[in-house]
């Protein structure tokens, strides 16, 4: 695969082990600048591990991860994050003991980041503004998920990795979250993991399907929606 300037991120044939377990056995993903790319696949296929491998939390043993034309595989997560990759992990990964304001302020990479982004963030998630002093642990599930996304927006991130933003949320909150993510995509490139095919198909431009640790199919989301056979084969009843 020739290096391409228009891809913010290219994952090339990575192999990742967790302890003895061979979790990723050849995953390749391309994320074009300005797109929303979604990773699809059944439970346990390796979607989350792919995100963690990109960030460096579970470094791949071989293969390459190219961010902005530079190979970043093997670097520790704190350094990858500082290069401009924001990560919103699954399960509402906020700091429960810190207030909403502290959760946001802690994500500043340069002083003034928060002041610059405040209006944008509270525009996306108006709820957070009135909860600013509450400890993160006191927020509802949906509010925690919003805070987790908001936190990734504080610094200048060129790429956001978002893992299962709809998981365990009420339908009305899912709508709000989808709206926020689609508005976000005007500012930043997004790589999304999403089990909810309806949500994924409405949001994403591109997809990559991962099956038992391997990327088996990728392309434009619009084409997949009409491809009943592939949906049945790779995603089963999910559609």
């Amino acid at each position: 695969m020739a290096p391409s300037q228009k891809n913010v991120l290219e994952v090339r044939n990575i192999q990742t082990f967790i302890g003895q377990f061979h979790i990723l056995d050849g995953v390749s993903v391309e994320v074009p600048d300005g797109s929303i790319t979604v990773l699809l696949g059944r439970n346990g296929a390796g979607k989350t591990t792919t995100l963690k491998s990109i960030l460096g939390l579970t470094p791949p043993r071989s293969g390459a991860i190219v961010f902005n034309g530079k190979e970043i595989q093997g670097e520790p997560a704190f350094r990858t994050a500082a290069k401009g990759i924001g990560y919103v992990p699954e399960h509402r990964a906020i700091f429960r003991d810190l207030s909403v304001a502290e959760n946001l302020r802690i994500a500043e990479r340069k002083s003034g980041d928060l002041a610059r982004r405040e209006e944008f963030i509270f525009g996306l998630f108006p709820d957070l503004k009135r909860l600013i002093k509450l400890p993160g642990g006191n927020l509802s599930g949906g509010q925690q998920q919003m805070l987790a996304v908001a936190r990734a927006l504080v610094p200048d991130n060129q790429l956001l990795l978002i893992d299962e933003p709809s998981e365990g949320l009420a339908p009305v909150v899912i709508e709000q979250m989808m709206e926020a993510i689609s508005r976000l995509s005007a500012h930043t490139t997004i790589l999304l993991v999403e089990q909810n095919f309806i949500m994924a198909s409405r949001l994403a431009d591109r997809y990559t399907i991962i099956e038992t640790g391997r990327s088996v199919k990728s392309g434009m989301m619009a084409d997949l929606i009409d491809d009943e056979a592939s949906i049945q084969r790779y995603l089963g009843a999910a559609a």
Partner: peptide
């Protein structure tokens, strides 16, 4: 999580 948002 602290590592993920860029802290060593």
């Amino acid at each position: 999580r602290a590592t993920m948002i860029g802290f060593n």
